[in-house]
Design a protein around this nucleic acid. Structure first.
Lengths: 237, 237
DNA sequence: AAGTGGTCTAGACCACATA
DNA sequence: ATGTGGTCTAGACCACTTC
């Protein structure tokens, strides 16, 4: 069933993107929106919170809610939902390709065990992949996943999309992600895999991903070529 | 006046950090918390939302709310609030130093005008600063601010803290920030200012900052040395 | 079956912006 | 003075997990 606050938010977003509500313009008041959609005040406010969260509007107490004045680039993409690589590419209308470098089951080294909160030596998948979107926007992904969490992961599934396997076939859902971001120098392997010119740096994203049941599910180090890509964030407050 | 949902969230956070509620443990139910703090269900839920947002707990429908199982590094710092450089350093108990490289009023070039949504040629401050925390964690900041927004900004104020001037002296508050992040090669100047070894890359953070009244306030390009620093993000969903 | 968090309501009062 | 969004309540019912 469609949730009310979601459908209201979706409708408002469509109106903004369609230009019915224009940048810097005030949208209807909370009261008016309650009336228009036949929902309560709290529900409207929750919808507006979602739009504010995604950077589309700004609320000003005493004045109203206004469409944010943003440029197209910022408009498009904030890295909010934790999408798998291939799904995120598909959403942009692009195709993802994956080259599997390594797929083994091994004993968790100390650092990986620490990040996944498991015992050192516990069995983990160790997966290395080189991925591209439209022959551009390349990245190297080093992923560790406890075998206990996904007992039967195959090389083929990991090549296509681990997230798809986890969410569709296992019925688990991803809950949240903690990321640390740095700039790093590529290794010779990475330079070769990504076709980097001498001296070109990479963006390193160290991430631990939680399932929505609270279990730690993967630890990944992503190393991205950012010449044709940028990592976008919108923060409030 | 202290808001109820804030004080409840703060109290729960203290209990978690003090180890009264331990990792993987369930905290009291919404009902019990309503009783304990003498507030309504919606208020408790809002507090729990804040804690979940900051990555401290995970809520599971039908099961309860659990303290997240995180390591100390992730625990410490998510870059959620938009803090000025010096305030953020102070919060960590460190001292910030700033070296002013350039402070001029100039005509907005095309790219800056586009980011700030002003006319090309409108007067803007153009400020270049080299900043450090404890002689470590260096960054170069290139900042553009429309003169119309802050008519009387002095070199001294910009050296200490622009955010302090804006928030305390002008009574304006920062609303939100849109960031784009990439890895880049430093310029020779930057390498010298930050004392970087040959080949060391920088993290570039392109940010536009909005005031809470919705006006665009600054466009900055920050170029950080990430050898002793990382940019942290926690995302839900 | 019992218990948990998720959604939603109708209404009250408050804090702030604008005129 | 008016109108805006912000906070908060008491209570109802629903969706999900398994205390």
């Amino acid at each position: 069933m469609a949730l009310k606050y979601e459908s209201v938010a979706k409708d408002l977003e469509e109106r903004i993107r369609a230009g019915i509500y224009r940048p810097r313009e005030r949208i209807p008041t909370v009261e008016e929106l309650c009336e228009a959609y036949g929902v309560s005040r709290i529900t409207v406010r929750r919808s507006l919170d979602m739009l504010e969260e995604s950077g589309l509007v700004v609320k000003r107490r005493g004045a109203g809610t206004f469409v944010k004045d943003m440029d197209a680039a910022q408009d498009l993409a904030a890295e909010k939902r934790v999408l798998g690589f291939s799904e995120s590419a598909r959403r942009d209308g692009c195709t993802a390709t994956t080259r599997m470098i390594d797929f083994t089951i091994t004993e968790a080294p100390a650092e990986v065990a620490r990040r996944l909160r498991i015992e050192e030596g516990e069995p983990v998948y160790h997966i290395t992949r080189v991925r591209h979107v439209n022959a551009d926007r390349g990245l190297v992904a080093y992923t560790w996943i406890p075998v206990a969490i996904i007992p039967r992961l195959t090389r083929e599934q990991a090549t296509v999309s681990i997230y798809h396997h986890v969410e569709v076939q296992l019925g688990l859902t991803v809950g949240s992600t903690h990321r640390q971001i740095r700039a790093v120098r590529p290794t010779p392997d990475e330079r070769r895999w990504l076709g980097l010119p001498e001296g070109e740096p990479l963006l390193e994203i160290d991430q631990t991903v939680y399932l929505s049941d609270g279990r730690l599910f993967e630890y990944s180090v992503l190393r991205r070529d950012t010449r044709a890509y940028s990592f976008n964030i919108i923060s409030k407050d």
